[in-house]
Design a protein around this nucleic acid. Structure first.
Lengths: 110, 110
DNA sequence: TGACATACGTTGCCACGCAATGTATTGTGG
DNA sequence: CCACAATACATTGCGTGGCAACGTATGTCA
């Protein structure tokens, strides 16, 4: 289990990164992130959907309903231009913090 | 400027890492982290001191007053055993999330 | 027919992040 | 010598948003 703050900080960048590969929908995102993290990151739907709605409101992603002939219909999300920009900024910031952190860590092994 | 969530998620690991090198005090920690991050991470004292107090309450760090003959007296913090453990766990979690994130990023450049 | 997996949604509350504010001392430049 | 800036620690209060909890619906398998 990953601590709360880290989950909060990584949710948006992870969603953006997942959608950058291909469009997807809420339920699938939850499972993908669980799989990719080796079951360490477990999003609940109650927290994910509001995040997706907020990101759509902010113009980072857009959605379309997929009417399938079988199963419940899905809401597919995909990246918008602003989402790509936001993703790039997230990467920069993560790299920076991660750099500082691993720099400090290295020091300790001297 | 780093986004709010990322600052929140990185504050505790950064403090622990800084203190792992050598003991330090609040004001100095603010400046060190600013310097190390190339002025990108700017902690305010109003947010840092409560964090330090909380970490001390949780037994991760301990403090001692340094009575100097000149200047205002300083409260020096240093790592306790539980702090080292917590730091290790933070590193693990950061590496995990960072790994997932950079894995996804790599995919996009294929 | 009941249980479980799939799938999306909203509400409400309370924890807590942190801006704002308070206090004190030392250094400095005009 | 007087402001002002820098150094240094501390607490309070309140706004908000994270997310647990709950609601709805369909498909499937035993």
């Amino acid at each position: 289990m990953i601590n709360k703050e880290l989950v909060a900080a990584s949710t948006e960048p992870l969603i953006l990164s997942l959608l950058a590969g291909r469009e997807s929908y809420g339920y699938a995102l939850i499972q993908e992130v669980k799989r990719l993290s080796g079951d360490k990151i477990e999003w609940t739907d109650g927290m994910l959907y509001p995040v997706l709605h907020r990101m759509e409101r902010r113009g980072l992603i857009k959605s379309r309903w997929d009417e399938r002939d079988t199963g419940r219909k899905r809401k597919y999300y995909s990246l918008k231009k602003d989402g790509k920009t936001a993703m790039a900024r997230h990467y920069e910031q993560w790299s920076l913090v991660h750099g500082v952190l691993s720099g400090l860590r290295k020091e300790q092994h001297v």
